[in-house]
Amino acid sequence: MSDKTYDRQNPAFYALLIALVVMAIGPIYLMLATSLKLNVDIMSDSSSLLFMPTLRNYETALCDFLWYEPEHLRRCDPTFGRALVNSLVIGLVSTAITLVIGTMAAYALVRFRFMGRDVVSLWTLMMRMVPPAVLLVPVFGIWTFQFGIDGSRGGIVLVYVALNLPFVIWILQSFIVQVPIQLEEAARMDGAGPFQVFFLVVLPLIKPGIAAASIFTFRVAWNEFLLANALADRNSRTVPVTIVNSLTEFDIDWGVIMATGMLLAIPPIIFTFVASRQIITGMTAGAVKG
């Protein structure tokens, strides 16, 4: 909306808005608050609003990276720190690979119409609907017995790239279609080869699409649990896997678990605040434009 005037609404409307906001972020706030509490405070019956915030749970989770030794810890458990590194590496590498090959494929599909676009979009749509649970059995079997890449980060990256590619291709297609072909023709006139046209002319123009695609890709790789759980060994576990593993134990340390959950949630939260417009574009691209 370009006009700066806003309609006045009645107070009940604002009350409803506030209630909605509280409902949307209340659970997240609770998790944050719990992660800043000592276990004594979590278990106590007194009011949960007043407590001394402490970073102790985060120190426990991240003890591997600290330059000092937290005095409340007798022994540092490096599981979570290692998982965090794994998650970051897997997330970033798979996002980078997916984007590079995804943009190239999307560009080829739009510009060199050698296959019906309907066929392609039906295929990508169908592939997009494949849930990780369906891939569980075959990916486990193939990765273990045929490729021999189970338990390595590379194996997990490969699944994530495959899982994300259809969506990335699909969403980037809708951005590339909007790039005027005259621009590319002009560049070609000036003697640019197909790769130059792609990297110097097309890529800069579809930056918003790439931003949306990379956020979605990274999010899937960062959040996914099932396939990572099936493929990872002790050294390549990602954060979601370690969280679920520590949950199955009988006595749950809520403070530390909420701290790890919070650490897992922080990158997506940052993306949301930085690029909410791109995210909404990505979400609505399929449904609203048809």
Binding site: W222, V244, L264, P268
Partner: peptide, 8 residues
């Protein structure tokens, strides 16, 4: 936000 953070 609820959609972006990990289902876990």
């Amino acid at each position: 936000l609820p959609m972006m953070i990990a289902p876990i």
